[in-house]
Amino acid sequence: MSDTRSFFGEGHPYLKITGLTGKLIVVEGTDGVGRSTQISDLKRWLEMNGHAVVTTGLTRSELLGKTIDQAKAGHTLNTQTYCLLYAADFADCLEHQIIPALRAGFVVLADRYIYTLMARAIVRGADKDWIRSVLGFALKPDAVLYLKISLENLIPRVINSERIHEHYWVEDSPEGLDYWEAGMDLRLGEDFYDSFLEYQRRKMNVFEVMAKEYGFEVIPASRGFSQTNRQLKQSIQRVLQSE
């Protein structure tokens, strides 16, 4: 089974990926779709069933630290610089968290993966083949569970009294919508709301294409937490049973 592990694209000669006996399960989906709530529940559930779990995300690695924030605040980043900064951050996470955990036989629940990085890049005008080959050293996951939601259902989850408050008044809030997450750097609309809407719409379109191309398992996330949760668990069960 460990021999079936492969790179997403062209791997690096020095990266050894044999003996990675764990499972890599990716949960993708746009901001506000409920990924993190689902993931913390899935982790508890998996652990109850005796699996050791590590969760990773596209958070700041130790290596990049504040570099990404400083770079974004400092001056206008061109598309390639922006994409490569995130690729470096991801590479650090892959080599220092994901691969060691898989080697130790853990289930790795990834809160977003290279697909989000690719979507952000493509929406910002990067060449699709370019970003795909830059991220070629990533491991191919055992499953990509894509939480799909319509814009109508997404809006009230992201833009509501709590989050507006947080976004406007709380500095460095992890919950608030930040400038870049709303794609404000792209100047897609005259205000924050318009920009958010257009940015999400474009990203969703890119995800639609990728879902087919890379065989995502599409999980409807517009209904409630429990329905989505049930489906996620079914999919994960299938992955864990397949050897």
């Binding site: 570099t67 400092g74 590479a91």
Partner: peptide
């Protein structure tokens, strides 16, 4: 100066891998 700090930190703490070194 963009990634200098990250490269320095990476070298000092020995965090850099061939991939991150290259991408940075």
């Amino acid at each position: 100066r963009l990634v200098n700090e990250a490269i320095k930190r990476g070298k000092k703490k020995n965090l850099l891998t061939p991939t991150t070194f290259s991408i940075l």
